[in-house]
Simulated assay, not measured.
Amino acid sequence: MLRWYSRVMAAWLFGAVFMSSAACLAANDTEALRGVGLPYPAVTPGAALAFPRDHGAHPEFRTEWWYITGWLSDEAGVERGFQLTFFRVRPRIGEGSPSRFSPSQLMLAHAAVADPGKGRLLHAERAERSLPPLAGAGEAHTDVRIRDWSLTWSEAPDTPGVYRARVGAGEFAFDLELRPDGVPVLNGEGGYSRKAPDPKHASYYYSRPHLKVSGQLRAGQGSHRVTGTAWLDHEWSSEIMPADARGWDWIGINLNDGGALMAFRMRGDKDIPVWSAATLRDADGSLRTLEFDEVRFVPRREWRSLRSGATYPVEWSLRLAGTDDAPERTFRIVPLMDDQELDSRASTGAIYWEGAVRLFEGDTELREIGKGYLEMTGYAERLEM
């Protein structure tokens, strides 16, 4: 889904990076550092995504993210959620400077583990200017890193390629291999994903569901061998959030039968939908794209954070309209645990809910049909992007 960077985050991140960068610049670099770069390119329908190139970075666009979420099970069968996101931001500042310390590209990362044993998220953050090889985003394929945090693609002759995600933080760490199952799923119109009635508010967006995961996880003092299933989103855009939108709700679900479901809604004041869409991949690989009036999120149960005071609808019904060939479907979204709020006021200033969920379906008796992640933004305060 449309990941974010707020004005608060951008100001904080640029301010921190700018000060360290400016100290390294010669006096004759000052004007170049202040200079504004070329305009951002527009996101337009009909632009065909090309792989493996589009797995890599698109540094001319305003913002971009690689977003992995998933469920892990350890040796004792204990289930946990995990999340890793790398952001690349182009502030259009310092692009004329010859200095490699110029903050013309910025990198940010969020990582978290949803551990029911702790009853809350374990999370950490990183931020740097792009300075290869320490921090940056490669353009040929997925290769993003901030110091010892990384998400990279590797392959050898005659062997399937894999992603590798590495994170080390105070309360947790993981080193995971993620093996794709099939080709990328193009969301929207062949990868062109609208976010509002005005078609300029859009992104290029694809997903890779059903990544097979194996590796090591440390949560607290315990280290575990884990396996599981994950979801990768890669999205890039040049537009800011629509003026009448307050935030959004998004899910990415790996279905038990091998299918996959992505759905989101942009949400305005008083919970009024601004836009919504979904992509449903059946087990046989066939795709159905749903538009604004075919996707309906309905809150069912709320949870209030004692830390931020924000109230989140942590349990949902999701309705997808039927067609001549398929009936209407109604799903229930239920969290692994209620407290999966990520509070980053000490750094980026943003507060949002992002956590592991189960998906159920049924009329008189619900049955679990998948697992994935739910993201909810704009409940603590409107996001400014």
Rank of each mutant, 00 (worst) to 15 (best):
W4L: 14
Y5H: 12
S6R: 02
R7M: 09
W12Q: 10
L13M: 15
G15H: 12
A16D: 15
D29S: 13
A32L: 08
L33T: 07
A48C: 08
H58Y: 02
W66D: 02
I68P: 10
T69S: 15
G70I: 00
L72I: 07
L72F: 07
Q83H: 13
T85P: 01
T85Q: 05
R90Y: 06
R90N: 15
P91D: 08
I93D: 00
E95I: 04
G96N: 13
R100H: 08
F101C: 10
P103N: 11
S104D: 15
L122F: 11
E128A: 15
E139I: 04
A140R: 12
A140H: 04
V144L: 00
S150L: 09
T152H: 02
R166H: 09
L176D: 04
L176R: 00
R179P: 07
P180L: 07
D181L: 05
D181Y: 01
P184C: 02
G188D: 03
G191I: 03
Y192S: 04
S193T: 12
R194I: 01
H201C: 09
H201A: 09
A202F: 06
S203C: 06
G215Q: 11
Q216D: 11
S223R: 10
R225F: 10
V226S: 11
A230H: 00
H234G: 04
S238Q: 03
M241Y: 08
P242H: 05
A243F: 03
D249C: 05
D249K: 02
I251T: 06
A260M: 04
L261T: 00
D271T: 03
I272A: 11
V274I: 14
L280S: 04
D282M: 01
D284F: 00
R288D: 06
E294R: 11
F297Y: 15
E302Y: 08
E302A: 14
W303D: 07
R304V: 10
L306F: 04
L306M: 15
T311R: 12
V314Y: 09
S317K: 11
S317V: 01
A321R: 12
P327S: 07
P327F: 03
E328H: 02
R329N: 06
T330H: 07
T330P: 01
R332W: 05
D338V: 05
D339A: 12
D339K: 08
A346D: 15
A350Y: 02
I351L: 07
G355M: 00
R358V: 01
I369S: 01
G372C: 05
G372R: 02
T377A: 07
